[in-house]
Design a protein around this nucleic acid. Structure first.
Length: 461
DNA sequence: TGAAATGTTGGGGCG
DNA sequence: ACGCCCCAACATTTC
C-alpha cells in the first residue's frame, strides 16, 4: 500500500505535517505535484517562473533522500482517481488551501475517496491559525486588524514546527506515471526572465539561508529600516508564498531570537505575518476577494478606465520618479519594496482613478510573490474598500513619499536611469528642473489637482 | 502603514 | 519696558 503526499503550496520538507503523517504510516510514499487548471485564472508569469524553480529544487531535495517528485498535469481529482486505479493506495495526505476553488476540489476529493478504503487527511501547512478557529465575541470574523491580531496572540498558540525527515521510502516504479517538469511549461516564453534570474534563487534551502541572513543582519532596526526601499527587508515573501519556508518556523525562530533584538523589531516582523494571516482569513470568509469590494459602496464608483494611463503606470512612465522606479523594479525583478507598493498602488487608484482590480491583475502577473490572499486583500486596503482599509481621503503624495523614504534619490536613480544626473533638489520633481532630461515623461496628472478630483469623487460615493 | 488646512504658541524684531 | 506683529514650529482638525 502507498501513501500519497499531494504537494501544493508547501514545497518544502521541513515542518511538513502532511509528509510527516505519511511517514508515520510506514508505507512507501508517492510525492506528487499536479499542475491543475481548476482556477478561473492561472498563475502569473513571474509566479510560474518561481514555481518551476521551486519544484525543481524540491525534486532535488527528494532525490537526496533517494525519492523523487512526481509531476502530473490536469484536473487533480481525475488524476488522483486514476492513480488509485493503478496503484494500491492507503492514504492521501495534503496541507490545506483557502481559496474557494481549491477548497471545493479538496472536498470533492475527500468525499469521493470516503467511499473507497483510501483515507484522506489534511493539515494546516500555511497558516499560524486556522481561519475557522478565529472569531470575535459575536462569533463573527474580525474586521479590524489590531483586534484580530490581539485575539490571535492572546487566545491561541502556534504549533511547534517539526524537522525534515532524514529518510523516505519510495518506489522507483512511481516514476513511470510522472511527466517531466519541463512539460508543465511553467517557464515564460518571453525573454523576460533575466532580471528574475539575477534577483532570486527559489527553493527551500535558499529560503532558510535568506531567513538566517535576515535574523543575523536585518531584524535589527527592521521597524525603521523596512520603510526605506534601498535597505533590505526580509525578502521572504515569494518563499512563503510557495511554502518553501513554514510560517510556524519563522514564528518560533523570531521568538527565540527576540533576546538579541529589540522587541519592537520582532513584534513588527511578526505583525507582518499577522497581516498575511488576516488576508487569508478574510479570503476564507470572502471567496470573491479578487473581484468584489468588501465595502459595497465601491461597486458603484466611477472609475476612469483610461488605457493610456494604465499602460503608462505599468511601464513606469507616469512622470513621478518614485512611482516609476517601483514599477520598473517590479518588471525587472518580479518584486517591489513594500513601501513602494503602497505608493504605486495608491497612485493608480487615487491619482489615476483606475479600478484597483486592474492593478491587482498586473501585480498578480508580475510579482514572484503574487499571493491569492495577500494581493487582492492589499489592493482593497489601498483602494479603501477592504478590511481595516486606508480611508478614502488618505492619499499618498508621491513627491513627499519620495523625499521621506528616498531622500537622495538613490532608489530612483537605480531604476530610472534617465534621471541619474538630475540633482538631489529636483530628483522628486524633475519637471521643475531647467535641464530636465528629454527622455523622461512629464507628469501624467498634476498632484494637487488629481488629489482634489479624487477626494470629490470618493466623497460623492 | 498621510497630507493639507487650520489653529496655537512663543521668541524676536521693532516702534 | 511694553505691545504689536511676524512667522516658524508645533498641535489639531479635516479631508
Amino acid at each position: 500500500m502507498v501513501a500519497i503526499v499531494w504537494f501544493r503550496n508547501d514545497l518544502r520538507l521541513t515542518d511538513h505535517l502532511a509528509l510527516d503523517a505519511a511517514l508515520k504510516t510506514g508505507n512507501p510514499i508517492l510525492p506528487i505535484f499536479i499542475y491543475d487548471s481548476i482556477h478561473s485564472r492561472s498563475f502569473g508569469e513571474a509566479s510560474k517562473w518561481w514555481l518551476h524553480h521551486s519544484l525543481s529544487s524540491l525534486k532535488r531535495t527528494l532525490n537526496l533522500l533517494k525519492a523523487d517528485l512526481i509531476f502530473q498535469q490536469g484536473n487533480a481529482f481525475e488524476i488522483l482517481k486514476n492513480i488509485a486505479e493503478q496503484i494500491p493506495l492507503s492514504h492521501i495526505f495534503w496541507n490545506r488551501r483557502y481559496d474557494a476553488e481549491g477548497m471545493q476540489q479538496d472536498i470533492q476529493v475527500k468525499s469521493y475517496f470516503k467511499e473507497t478504503n483510501i483515507i484522506c487527511h489534511s493539515f494546516n501547512g500555511s497558516l499560524l491559525f486556522e481561519p475557522h478557529t478565529i472569531k470575535n465575541k459575536e462569533g463573527k470574523p474580525f474586521k479590524v486588524f489590531s483586534a484580530f491580531w490581539k485575539h490571535c496572540l492572546s487566545q491561541h498558540s502556534v504549533q511547534e514546527p517539526i524537522p525534515a525527515p532524514t529518510h523516505l521510502s519510495f518506489d522507483k516504479k512511481f516514476n513511470e506515471i510522472s511527466h517531466t517538469l519541463d512539460s508543465l511549461e511553467l517557464l515564460p516564453k518571453l525573454g523576460w526572465i533575466k532580471g528574475l534570474e539575477e534577483s532570486w534563487s527559489p527553493g527551500e534551502e535558499n529560503a532558510q539561508k535568506n531567513f538566517d541572513f535576515f535574523l543575523k543582519n536585518s531584524l535589527k532596526n527592521y521597524k525603521k529600516n523596512r520603510d526605506y526601499p534601498t535597505l533590505k527587508t526580509s525578502r521572504l515573501s515569494p518563499y512563503i508564498r510557495r511554502g518553501e519556508i513554514s510560517v510556524r518556523q519563522l514564528w518560533r525562530a523570531i521568538h527565540q531570537h527576540a533576546i538579541f533584538s529589540k522587541e519592537v523589531d520582532s513584534e513588527c516582523f511578526l505583525s507582518e505575518l499577522g497581516w498575511r494571516e488576516f488576508s487569508y482569513h478574510t479570503l476564507f470568509h470572502h471567496p470573491d476577494l479578487e473581484e468584489i469590494p468588501l465595502k459595497k459602496d465601491f461597486e458603484a464608483f466611477p472609475w476612469e478606465k483610461n488605457p493610456n494611463h494604465f499602460d503608462a503606470w505599468t511601464k513606469g512612465l507616469t512622470g513621478y520618479p518614485i512611482v516609476d522606479a517601483g514599477m520598473r523594479e517590479l518588471w525587472r525583478t518580479g518584486y517591489m519594496h513594500n513601501r513602494v507598493r503602497m505608493i504605486t498602488a495608491s497612485f493608480l487608484v487615487k491619482h489615476l482613478l483606475q479600478p484597483w482590480q486592474n492593478g491587482e491583475k498586473w501585480f498578480w502577473d508580475t510579482l514572484v510573490d503574487a499571493d491569492v490572499a495577500s494581493n487582492p486583500f492589499n489592493w482593497q486596503w489601498v483602494a479603501g474598500c477592504g478590511a481595516d482599509a486606508a480611508p478614502y481621503f488618505r492619499i499618498f503624495n508621491p513627491i513627499l513619499q519620495g523625499e521621506k523614504f528616498d531622500p537622495q534619490g538613490e532608489y530612483i536613480r537605480s531604476w530610472v536611469p534617465e534621471l541619474r544626473d538630475v540633482p538631489d533638489d529636483f530628483i522628486h520633481t524633475p519637471w521643475l528642473y531647467e535641464n530636465r532630461p528629454s527622455d523622461y515623461p512629464e507628469p501624467l496628472v498634476h498632484h494637487s489637482k488629481a488629489r482634489e478630483k479624487a477626494l470629490k469623487a470618493f466623497k460623492a460615493m
